[in-house]
Every structure is written in structure tokens, then in C-alpha cells.
Design a protein around this nucleic acid. Structure first.
Lengths: 152, 152
DNA sequence: TCGATATTTGGATTCATTCCAAAAACCCAC
DNA sequence: GTGGGTTTTTGGAATGAATCCAAATATCGA
């Protein structure tokens, strides 16, 4: 399931915050790494139950919150929709396809980020930026998968 | 209350969609123009009741939705917080101050927007971008009000 | 003024998320 | 290994923003 190197990362990061690497946390982190389609908590729950039928929704929420808290996972919000989760830690934007509902990761290079930062007047210290595109995506078959990763 | 030119704009824009300029819609649009602090629906409701005690929360939601629908008002979402509304129609980003909860409008020039668009691979057609900074703002007293407009 | 249509209203409902307190799992010292 | 203090998990209840609903009102053009 979860690959040894990720396993280590998980245990380390959790440990740094005095938290334990439980079976549930491993499972959920593993699921996110395995299928990087920006699932909602409910979707993660559904997937988790297949592996661990006894897991509860509350636990899924708890685990996701924990993973976000120790920077192993990021959360994405579109309008008023349920929060989605992704294990992509690179600075990246999201593209939300209005037609299909799919979410694509869009890589952001440092130059662009630096540029963007310049719109802020003096005194504004950003700790994070969130960039969400909304529109229609018709990614060129081969290309798209390289720079943008499909997701539901 | 609402200034004649805005009044006209409102009636026009509504009319274009076959909608009526009701007292409630005028009131709410006026309130948003008057106090540009990105209020939530609840806050708008509270303000509206002072002018029109009989107005209902459902109506406030309806009106806000209508105004957004005919592009007189934009909505902003931060994480899981209640939606906020602003009558600033320029393309602009938002800066959310984690300390105070205030929201600042950040002007975006066309060059920056064009630049940002270039991060999208072929085939991605954005209809809108949403840019939210999160951090701490200590706007220089005089400057800030020019380029960024304070809000709660 | 009338009638067709759009809007408002209060209350009930939805649904994602959070809270809670009890049960279970974990881990370290002995 | 065992016990005890701490963390986690769990199911169900609670929250809260937003939406839905059907009846009452308001609006607009003829």
C-alpha cells in the first residue's frame, strides 16, 4: 500500500508534532497518494471503508485535519463545495473544470509567484496564496498529463 | 441612500435579465456600495433590518444571489468561512488578514493577469481566476487606502 | 385597475463539518 | 510483559451556512 519512503515521511512529520502514526492515518495518507484526484472527505471515507470497514467518518475528518496540520496534505476549496484534499506539496494552482467537475493541478514556477507577490502594497506579508482557475479544460491528450494532472 | 447612477445601473442590469428592481434589491445593493467591508450574508441582514425591519434572511440570500447573478456583486470565499460579498467589479485579488479577519482588495493590473494566464497549458480556457492571499497586513497608514481598501 | 408574473417570507430542510464523551489503542517505565 | 497515562478513534448529537418550499405579496404592463 503506502510506500516505505512515504511511510517514513508520515511517521517523521507526525512525530515532529508529537503525534502518532496510527493505522487510520497511514491508510488515509496512502489513499491520497495513490489516487490523486482531489477527493472530498466523503470520497476518502468511501475508499477507506473498503480497506478498513470499521473506520468512521469522524476519523476520516480527524485524520485529514491532522495531515493538513503537519503539512503532508493540502486542502482546496471551490466556492461552497465540500473541501477537497491533495498530497501535492509543490506550490501550485488549481483549475476547476465547470463541465466535468474535474480538478487539475497547475504547476507554478517561482518567477510567476514572485511576480504575483509584487501586486501587494507595502506591509502586506502573505503566508500563502491560493489561486483557482475556473473554466473549461480540453487538455491536449499527451501534453496535459505532464504539466497538469487530471483529477475528478 | 443609493446614488442615482447606481440606481440606474441596478435597474438596467436587472432588466437585462428580465428581473425587477425591488425595494429589497435596491436596499441591499445600496448597503454593499455604502460599506465596502466584504460583509457576510448575516451581516448584510443585520444592516438591512435597520432600514427595513421586515426583511427576511431568505430575501437577503435571494437578493445577494441575484446581484451576483447579474454581475453587480462578486462573492469571496475563504476556506470554510461564510461567503462574503463585494461590489468591486474590477479584477482584483483579496488579502485576508489572519490576525484581524479584515479583507483587503488588491488591484490586479492586466499585465499581471496576462502573465498569470501563461501558467495554464494549452486547452485550458479560464472563465475566471480567484486569487486569495492569506497572511498579516500592516498597511502603511496613507498608502494602503490607495491601492488596497480596508474591510473587515 | 386587473391579471399574469416575479418576489418575498418564515419555517423546515439539507448537508458538510464539528463536537462530545465513552471506548479502544498506544507507548513508556517499571 | 504489565500498568497507567496519554492519544486516538468512534457513533451520535449538534452546529451553522445555505437552500428549499409553498403561501402571501408586490410589481408591471395593458
Amino acid at each position: 500500500m503506502i510506500q516505505p519512503e512515504h511511510q517514513t515521511t508520515l511517521t517523521e512529520k507526525l512525530g515532529q508534532s508529537g503525534l502518532r502514526a496510527t493505522r487510520q492515518r497511514e491508510l488515509i495518507y496512502g489513499l491520497l497518494l495513490e489516487q490523486r484526484d482531489h477527493p472530498t472527505a466523503d470520497e476518502v471515507y468511501a475508499r477507506a471503508k473498503q480497506e478498513m470497514p470499521s473506520i468512521s467518518l469522524a476519523t476520516v475528518y480527524n485524520c485529514l485535519e491532522t495531515l493538513v496540520g503537519c503539512h503532508l496534505v493540502k486542502q482546496v476549496n471551490f466556492e461552497r463545495q465540500p473541501t477537497r484534499f491533495c498530497p501535492n506539496l509543490h506550490e501550485h494552482a488549481h483549475f476547476h473544470d465547470e463541465k466535468t467537475g474535474r480538478v487539475y493541478d497547475i504547476d507554478l514556477d517561482d518567477r510567476t509567484l514572485a511576480k504575483l507577490r509584487t501586486v501587494l502594497p507595502e506591509g502586506f506579508e502573505p503566508r500563502a496564496v491560493e489561486i483557482n482557475f475556473r473554466g473549461v479544460a480540453a487538455p491536449a491528450k499527451k501534453r496535459a498529463t505532464r504539466s497538469a494532472t487530471a483529477a475528478r
